[in-house]
Design a protein around this nucleic acid. Sequence first.
DNA 1: TATTGTTATACTCTATAACTATA
DNA 2: TATAGTTATAGAGTATAACAATA
Lengths: 152, 152
Amino acid sequence: MDKPKGVAFLLSQLGAYGAQRFAERLRPLDIEPRHVGLLRMISANEGASQQELGERMGVVPSRMVSFVDDLEDRGLVERARNPKDRRAYALHLTEKGVKMLRQAMLISVEHNEELCAPLSQDERDVLAQLLDRLAGAHNLVPGVHPGYRHLR
Amino acid sequence: MDKPKGVAFLLSQLGAYGAQRFAERLRPLDIEPRHVGLLRMISANEGASQQELGERMGVVPSRMVSFVDDLEDRGLVERARNPKDRRAYALHLTEKGVKMLRQAMLISVEHNEELCAPLSQDERDVLAQLLDRLAGAHNLVPGVHPGYRHLR
DNA sequence: TATTGTTATACTCTATAACTATA
DNA sequence: TATAGTTATAGAGTATAACAATA
């Protein structure tokens, strides 16, 4: 009766659904998907300042404050003063933060497993490769979610 | 250095990116992606009440009010009193609404074209089929976006 | 009493701009 | 003067609950 839905809608629908499911899985850890992204970012850029990270993620400075607060309140990151420039912080994961990131990555693997369960291994590989090519062709930065972004 | 990103992240990233692009394309029409979904819903269920539609889309009644207001303000839908039950409305598209939906569908086609441009026709077919299977296996309702939903 | 739609309210999220402390 | 981070503020979005009209 109705035209088949396009790829764009399916991507948005599945993407939003997956994000919700991932959030549910993270709930016991008391963090959200975006916090995992930030933990990853800090881990991959130890010692970077808040605003350096914010720029990479497309997050405005004022938002970075509460974003980092969330993790600091949970004892997952520490703000160390940068001795070279005492205006800036040098962010780094605590031991607890490293463990949390590790747990979140495990949950992420489980989550991917669940999401792809309906597909064979070959099909998953094909899907991953197609999605990866699309993301690359549209200049999406690995690990940086558009939902973080303040576009301007 | 880092593990390859999973399918789940790519889906979420591409889905959010695509939704943003689609919103940009719709801007000249002065509507948003969700309004297209609602127009489609009304079109496919002429005469249904606000709350009937809301239930199908997972939108709470109070939110449906302003949602339908958006379209009524633009002259795209009309609230007709249902003579059988004067508490309820019978929603239907105006002529302008029908045209608007048609235009939005054209834009949607262009949008899909742009998003899939990096892939060959065969690859698009494979991708569409894989995504469709995933959506079906996870019980996602065609045309109903999780972002509409109030999950309880 | 129950139901449809509406309004009131409160809460969350976020961007802008003003501010502070350093540089 | 300029920059890193913070705070103040205002606007948007949305859910809950109270409400009016009708059943």
